[in-house]
Design a protein around this nucleic acid. Structure first.
Lengths: 234, 234
DNA sequence: CGATGGCATTGACCTTGGTCAACCGCCCCC
DNA sequence: GGGGGCGGTTGACCAAGGTCAATGCCATCG
């Protein structure tokens, strides 16, 4: 595939590639494949041999596990600019994807061959460090998730999720536009859709938020922060 | 500290060091410190600046989070021959430990300076690969834990834990010696000690196991495997 | 030897969140 | 315009597991 080096810059949005040498990034990019998914399309299934990993250009992809009964738990919702499944390469010989991946919205991705990436890692310790950084961030994220699943209740998890959706620099009464169907958020938080509804209703009745479909107006940030034991914002 | 190179071999038990060049391992080992902990001693606290990571020689160390109310959730129970807190080095500048670490039993460890390890990683891509392997194993373990916390109930988690304790090659009615107090196991499985007791009693009444204090005799492996949807052992 | 304290067990009760079912609003499509 | 399907909401009920309290069981120690 013939690709412009400028387009490789797009990859720099990912932590994994942020500090990678220009030449390495270009070389890697030459072997990348374009992927287009419609909403609901599967990208890979748990247990399949993992020969490539992915950079999400736009759209949204969910990573999830299924129970034998068919219940779904979303481990992570990937956002544009993020990479995923890079870690699988190191799961012994011939790793397999440990989760399922499916597009939530229409999505465009680059698929990168693990073989070429492995070659690169052998040569460039900077690339190694980029990957180590990516993986330790994900590790930390999973530990946080385990903590909130075990030590906190459903209301806590939902409120924490809402607060995460508020951009850092907002001071005024913040608006949150839910970017995924509520059912997806429920699965990410490991609660049932009905429970999500009820918690939102409770927060609404308490005057903490307003809900209009996907759009939530936070009326009392302070109260929400208290609920999750966060210090008041100065 | 003056150390015999032979003793460095001890470190090879850890995946992280298994394939590392002899010279590198020795160099790293020269800067290692001995640590001795009594049962209940803290090794580090969540939030402390992380300047070293650890190799557990013997004993047992728990890694855990605390809720604001003081409830404890054990993320991982470290066994002799394992390393932990290696990943923290890559959490941006001056990482901090994301969990607490405390000895369950009397323990001996080596503490390894992250600085010397970082230097080594820059020089040796083999060392990098060892670390990447360690981290992806831990990543996988955490995903499994999230799955069983959200998609499975308490009985499932306990049975899965018991089956994990059975050595691979045992065919006859297997004996499980619990190596930690039941309260520790309960926290690892995210259940209350009372619930652990009750589930064991239920399994006992069902004729699946015998319980004598810390010692559990599995009377019906097949039935237990069915409970956690594992295929029958051939 | 009895006292103390930590761990485990058991029972009674309660709370959270899941389950099941009905229903609404909306969009799409025939 | 009517029907159907999907996502979300609401209500009634239920159950798994948490909470609280009493008790037992050792092991340790004075």
């Amino acid at each position: 595939m013939n690709r412009s080096p400028e387009a490789a810059r797009e990859l720099r949005r990912a932590y994994l590639f942020a500090d990678m040498a220009e030449e390495h990034l270009n070389a890697l990019f030459q072997t990348a494949h374009d992927i287009h998914l419609n909403a609901g399309d599967a990208l890979f299934r748990q247990g399949q041999p993992a020969e490539r990993f992915f950079f999400l250009r736009d759209g949204m992809v969910k990573l999830f596990r299924l129970s034998p009964e068919g219940d779904e738990k979303i481990i992570e919702i990937m956002q544009p600019g993020q990479t995923f499944a890079e870690a699988v390469m190191f799961m012994g010989t011939h790793g397999r994807y440990p989760v399922n991946a499916e597009a939530v919205n229409e999505s465009r991705l680059y698929a990168i061959e693990q073989k070429s990436f492995l070659n690169l890692l052998r040569e460039s310790s900077d690339a190694c460090f980029g990957l180590l950084g990516s993986m330790s961030r994900r590790l930390h994220m999973l530990v946080n998730q385990i903590e909130s699943l075990t030590l906190q209740n459903a209301t806590y998890r939902l409120v924490a999720y809402l607060l995460e959706q508020i951009p850092r620099d907002v001071k005024t009464s913040p608006e949150v536009q839910l970017t995924t169907p509520k059912g997806v958020i429920a699965s990410r938080l490991a609660i049932q859709p009905e429970t999500l509804s009820r918690i939102l209703a409770k927060l609404r009745q308490g005057g903490l938020i307003d809900v209009h479909g996907n759009h939530i107006t936070v009326r009392d940030v302070q109260a929400l922060r208290n609920l999750v034991h966060l210090p008041p914002v100065e």
